[in-house]
């Protein structure tokens, strides 16, 4: 999907507005976390989240995580108009609890990985990603 520069700016502006005025139908970051954890306590640590410090383009940002012992991991982009990114459920034949994806980030923000462990506890990691607009390419 292609964004013109104008659309990208519009999306950025929209995202900024949304940060102040939550729009009905789009769950907040806290709601997305609670939806996954059921309100349980989330302890920071025990999960490794890797993302670029500066993303050259917010349209395609490579991220990966490693959450040893997790049964599921939810990725949340805290600054996106809709913060949910993906929920990864590991099956019995998962080789480990790691996964790499490419994601869209509307602006500079924190990306969260919340891991549900086999014992029902929750762990998390957070990485700040600076997003630059556009670029000329080539």
């Amino acid at each position: 999907m292609e964004f013109t520069r104008r659309e990208t700016l519009a999306i950025g502006a929209g995202a900024a507005a949304l940060a102040v005025l939550p729009i009905r139908g789009m769950a907040s970051v806290d709601e997305e976390i609670a939806d996954f954890t059921g309100g349980a306590e989330v302890v920071e640590g025990g999960v490794t989240l890797t993302a670029p410090e500066i993303a050259e383009n917010g349209n395609t940002v490579p991220i990966s995580f490693d959450a040893p012992g997790a049964v599921a991991v939810r990725i949340i982009a805290t600054g996106n108009p809709s913060p949910k990114v993906a929920t990864v459920n590991f099956g019995p034949l998962a080789g480990n609890q790691s996964c790499a994806l490419r994601i869209r980030l509307a602006r500079t923000q924190d990306v969260l990985a919340i891991a549900k462990m086999a014992d029902g506890s929750f762990k998390s990691a957070k990485v700040a990603v600076k997003v630059t607009i556009g670029g000329c390419g080539g």
């Binding site: 349209n59 809709s82 990114v85 990864v88 459920n89 980030l105």
Partner: peptide, 10 residues
């Protein structure tokens, strides 16, 4: 693996 993907996936 079984992944739910949202519009924030590239």
């Amino acid at each position: 693996i079984d992944i739910t993907l949202e519009p924030a996936i590239s």
